[in-house]
Simulated assay, not measured.
Amino acid sequence: MGKKTKTILLCLLPVQILLVKWASNYPDFIETYYSNGIYPFISKTLRILFGWIPFSMGDILYTALFIFVFRYLYKNWKSIKAKPLTFLKDIGVLLSMVYFLFHFNWGLNYHRYPIATKLGLEREYTQKELTQFIQYLTEKSNSYQFQITGDSISPVHIPYSKKEIFSMTQEGYRELSKTYPEFDYNFSSQKSSIYSIPLTYMGYGGYINPFTNEAQVNGITPRFRLPTVSGHEVGHQLGYSAEDDTNFIGFWVTSVNEDPYFKYAAYSHALGYCLSDLARKDEAKFKEMINQLNPGVQENFREISRFWAEYENPLEPVFKSIFNVFLKANNQQEGIESYNAVVGLIINFHHKYGF
């Protein structure tokens, strides 16, 4: 790459940042011309290109980039020390290209209208509404747990493979698209990340690769959680970047699936978020509600707790703090707390539409 080209790319970085900042003030523009304009074509094209490959091309891309950077630093260390400004310029050029690809391929969706606006949902709710909704979710979770296991004691173990869960997630989107065409999902590109163990140490259940548009799930997550995680990541593929939006979509698309295992996954996952919210507000009421759960449902919650506790480490808060900054820099003012904002969405959706 010539010096002139590098200089142009470096100068384009602040211009891009200002343009994205300007566009973020016009969600209607983003919604019309990007999220519902060119983005569906970009997403579908990338899914066609990479969806048929059984492993994650995005993970391979990250691995290759890491090797390239490490090799470059090793081979050029002396020249880097001799000409640090040239090295900083090269970093700026790389950041400029990555910034463009991130926002063009997916990232501008952070600045679209939230799903609450599109569905006409409020986000506020009272503690009484939360408690009543937990009661409803408890009845649903207990019912499906009993239907699946034949007793109230046994935890639910989903018998499907990850590939089958991905396929059934696609069926859920097909069902949802009958009423909401914007959730039409063809050319599936769902993968189990080859970095599932590192993802677990970082505390994540999955992620969307913004450069290849692959929906990555943490493949070692307890299986009964995978339907909602899969639904969540496909929601990202369809252009919803906000975590509260995709948490809601993950629940929604899993709940419309007629399979009882998926129904259980949806209701128990929503119940987990609501119980966590109640625990922060009224610990005594939280304990009372927990005691209403079938022992089998309680065991599934303990399974999830044991899983994350096994991989707990001192660096996890660091990773989450970095992600928190990233979310806030991308128009998610609540940062990582936006994951829990799904509670208000689900409660108000239930009030308005029922499920």
Rank of each mutant, 00 (worst) to 15 (best):
E299K: 13
H350L: 04
N257Y: 08
Q292I: 02
F50N: 09
Q237G: 04
K81F: 12
I17N: 12
G37W: 05
D245W: 06
E31I: 07
R280Q: 10
G239W: 05
K140I: 00
F323C: 12
W77F: 04
Q292L: 01
G335T: 08
H157D: 15
M57Y: 14
E288R: 00
F262L: 11
Y110C: 13
V15C: 09
N247D: 07
Y353M: 06
A116C: 08
L46R: 04
R302G: 03
S276N: 11
E334C: 06
Y264L: 05
L119A: 12
E31R: 04
Y207W: 10
I91V: 07
Y144N: 01
E334W: 09
I17V: 14
E233N: 02
C274F: 02
N76S: 08
I42V: 15
L327C: 11
P260R: 03
N257M: 10
I322S: 14
P317I: 01
I194G: 09
A341V: 07
I347Y: 05
Q132V: 00
H351V: 06
I148K: 05
I346A: 00
G219A: 10
K162I: 14
S35T: 13
L18F: 12
I158N: 14
H111Y: 15
K44C: 15
I115Q: 00
N142G: 07
I208L: 13
F323M: 11
F133W: 09
L130W: 00
K81M: 08
V69M: 06
M168P: 05
M202V: 11
R225P: 07
A279T: 10
S193W: 04
Y99G: 08
S276C: 00
L345M: 02
Y339H: 00
D59P: 10
L9T: 02
I304D: 05
F326L: 12
S268F: 07
F87W: 02
F166A: 10
Y273Q: 03
L101W: 12
F29D: 02
Y195L: 13
H236G: 10
A270R: 03
Y180N: 10
Y99D: 07
N294S: 00
G37L: 09
V93I: 08
S192N: 04
T169A: 14
Q170E: 05
T5I: 12
G250M: 08
F251D: 00
L46S: 08
F29I: 10
S152W: 12
V217L: 06
V343C: 04
Y173S: 01
I158F: 15
T200I: 05
M202Y: 08
K328Q: 14
N109K: 13
S255P: 10
N294Q: 04
N36H: 15
P314Q: 07
F355Q: 00
A284P: 03
L108Q: 01
I347C: 06
L278W: 02
K78P: 05
K75H: 01
E182W: 15
Y26E: 11
W77S: 08
R174S: 11
K83N: 14
E243R: 02
T228K: 07
I347K: 06
V229C: 05
I336Q: 11
H111M: 13
F211E: 12
